[in-house]
Amino acid sequence: MIGLLLCLPAALILGVGFVWPVVLLARISFNRTTDMGAMEEAWTLDTYARIVTDDFTWDLAWNTITLSAGCAAAAVALALPVTLLIRNAPPRWRGLMALMAVAPLLVSGTARIVGWMAILGDQGMVNALLTGLGITSDPLRLINNLTGVRIGLTESLMPYCCLVLIAGLGRLDSRLEEAAATLGATRSRTFLRVTLPLAFPALLAAFLLAFVLGVSAFITPRLMGGGRVFVVATEIFDLALETVDWPAAAAMAMLLLGTLIAAMVLRGVLTARKVAG
């Protein structure tokens, strides 16, 4: 009883902050948009039909999935060595190192992107170095395109991967690696045969979290893509705030939400089956 009572604030916040807006959004998605952009109250699936039959939607979906899956995989791959370094560090340094690994979360997304512009821009640090050393004559195009979004999104997902992996690998008994060493395994074989397989659930969890965050990422594709990268989130933004087609924006948001929920449920089912089997 007291437990339920203690859950009440969280339930309220979730209800007011998430469930109710989603209900409103769902309602809007059934409205109709006139050809001059006005919204008419209705109960129609026209907007959904319009979105689903538009080839561009499927391009968006494909772009979004490949971008976030690639960046999530890269983020996990980059976060793993960092996490292993933290795990093997002397205990008194571990807290500080973990804090540094997740510190980017404390910086606002926009500020981070300003930093990336200074680094990756045509006149940025990387290009100044490359042209200064005579390696390239034309600046490399590292931002305002898909490359920029990939770099920025991977970087922004890394701290989340580090968080998940630090928690996941923390439970991994270091005695297992010692046991492998005493059984004649070199460091690299220990990593491949023991550490990696045992870290797999944590790696998968980190990947899924990063993927979901990547799919819903807006700021990085918008600000680092130079208008050349079209994903579901940027399209929702355009629909809501440029063309003011709220039913379409809402319908697309509902489709995204539905897909993400389905993915989560599927993952839950798969893990449950694996545990049971």
Partner: peptide
């Protein structure tokens, strides 16, 4: 890994992802 010693740990440190046979085979394989 170059000392050729067999160690039994307090917590056994068996590889949880391998069967008993694969655990025993690990050192031979390495």
């Amino acid at each position: 890994h170059r000392r050729n010693m067999g160690v039994v740990f307090q917590s056994y440190a068996l590889f949880p992802h391998l069967t008993a046979a694969r655990n025993v085979a690990f050192g031979l394989e390495m």
